[in-house]
Design a protein around this nucleic acid. Sequence first.
DNA 1: TTGACATATAAGCATATTCTTATATGATGT
DNA 2: ACATCATATAAGAATATGCTTATATGTCAA
Lengths: 115, 115
Amino acid sequence: MQPSPALFRAVADPTRRGILDRLALGDAGASDLDPAHAMSQPAMSQHLKVLREAGLVEVRAHGRRRIYSLQPDALRPIYDWISHYERFWDARLHRLGALLDEQAPYGPEAEDDTP
Amino acid sequence: MQPSPALFRAVADPTRRGILDRLALGDAGASDLDPAHAMSQPAMSQHLKVLREAGLVEVRAHGRRRIYSLQPDALRPIYDWISHYERFWDARLHRLGALLDEQAPYGPEAEDDTP
DNA sequence: TTGACATATAAGCATATTCTTATATGATGT
DNA sequence: ACATCATATAAGAATATGCTTATATGTCAA
């Protein structure tokens, strides 16, 4: 089964992946997540919203600050999806695949249209 | 390090993930990849181009057909990126993280602004 | 060679995404 | 209460994405 579009969309953006990487080091307030002020405050807030809606981060209030924390479990659907391909990463399986291809040039379902 | 934007962009689209899932079953001609004619021929061709540019598929000519094959190795950067988060998936580590959080409420870098 | 087939590319349009500026909300310290 | 700080939301503009129709390229079969 496929991961939710919201999840893939959330991690598709390099800025947001950077935020996740940062949060993997430890919880942080929203403003701490962009120390170099590479983007405006609303831009960051919007990225955090996308991550929240994907379940990848959670917020808690600490006074007037919002402390964000990583919810790494939310990445599992992507991990599981990719894991299905892991079996192809073994060189011997690759070799076997090549052998099978020699016998059936382009897969089990392709009809032979060149008699 | 972060996977290339082209790679993440390629798998961010559910239609393209479907194409990859289909190719995991075996090589196929471009037209075989949309048996239900859910989209136009150019749409499929454009999706395949994105996948090609991300290195996720390769083409070979077989007569006038183009046979596409999966290049699963190209998924590894995403897999590796996500693997960094895998260590958080263990419940005991989660527990430990909570304990550490009690001692340092929101991570190692947050300055104490509530005296 | 010629016409049909399989795929790719070009151009244009609708929608989505991401940014910006301006403003709202809510907590803090005086 | 009031000014300030931290964050969120609204609205709009610029760009990116994914689709469509039309057309180009290359192969096959007669």
